[in-house]
């Protein structure tokens, strides 16, 4: 099970409301390379994973990603909390506002609701770990895109932290992949769905 810690993984204190920035950051909440999808991907994949090391890294990274979900949602909240109706209109936030008010809803930056179609769980350890490594790189690239359109240091600091975590996770998944490949080699198994090779 999970427990909740009443603190953020990294502090967030955004003073200036900015609806455009909120939409950009929202992409990492409910978008295809976002933290929610990342967490659900790793939780789902961990059940059919082989080797204790790879199972551990999946559940631990998934847990950290839940902390990142909280961080990006907090950023969206702080970026929109004090918006006036006038700012909502001027900053192109009105369509979102009609549906969700100033609430936080998992969707892409361009308005598509969160979808599990953005990730996979193949039950094949090699396929899954390759996807995880690609996912971390895509998330890193997305953070870099958000940072390019961001000029508020209050927003940039947590983004920089989150981007760096993607790099660390990529490294760990790469190590897990090698452990799993060695394991499958030893067992004289093929790189396909293990159930089929018994």
């Amino acid at each position: 099970m999970w427990v909740y810690e009443k603190k953020l993984m990294y502090p967030i204190n955004i003073k200036r409301a900015d609806a455009r920035m909120a939409k950009a950051v929202m992409d990492q909440y409910g978008g295809p390379d976002g933290e929610l999808g990342a967490s659900l991907r790793y939780i789902s994949q961990h059940y059919a994973m082989v080797t204790p090391e790879a199972k551990a890294i999946l559940i631990d990274v998934a847990t950290e990603e839940l902390g990142h979900v909280e961080m990006v949602a907090t950023m969206v909240r702080q970026l929109t909390k004090n918006l006036t109706p006038d700012e909502v209109k001027k900053q192109g936030y009105d369509a979102y506002y009609v549906e969700h008010g100033l609430g936080v809803y998992p969707q892409t930056g361009s308005g598509l609701p969160f979808s599990a179609l953005a990730f996979a769980s193949k039950g094949d350890p090699i396929a899954d770990l390759h996807e995880d490594m690609a996912a971390e790189q895509k998330a890193r690239a997305t953070y870099e895109n958000i940072m390019k359109v961001c000029d508020d240091p209050d927003v940039l600091e947590p983004l920089r932290f989150l981007r760096e975590r993607e790099v660390v996770h990529f490294q760990r998944f790469g190590e897990a992949l090698r452990i799993v490949q060695d394991y499958l080699d030893n067992k004289k198994r093929f790189y396909t769905n293990p159930k089929c090779c018994k």
């Binding site: 427990v3 909740y4 810690e5 009443k6 603190k7 953020l8 502090p11 967030i12 204190n13 955004i14 003073k15 909280e70 949602a73 907090t74 909240r77 702080q78």
Partner: peptide, 30 residues
């Protein structure tokens, strides 16, 4: 600080604000 894992007293409750998304929780740290 952690749900379901620690005893608590009547004065400082789990539900007390600030919650982590609130700016004032992060203001001093920042």
């Amino acid at each position: 600080l952690v749900s379901f894992r620690n005893t608590q007293d009547a004065a400082e409750k789990w539900s007390d604000e600030p919650w982590p998304s609130q700016r004032r929780m992060n203001l001093r740290i920042f």
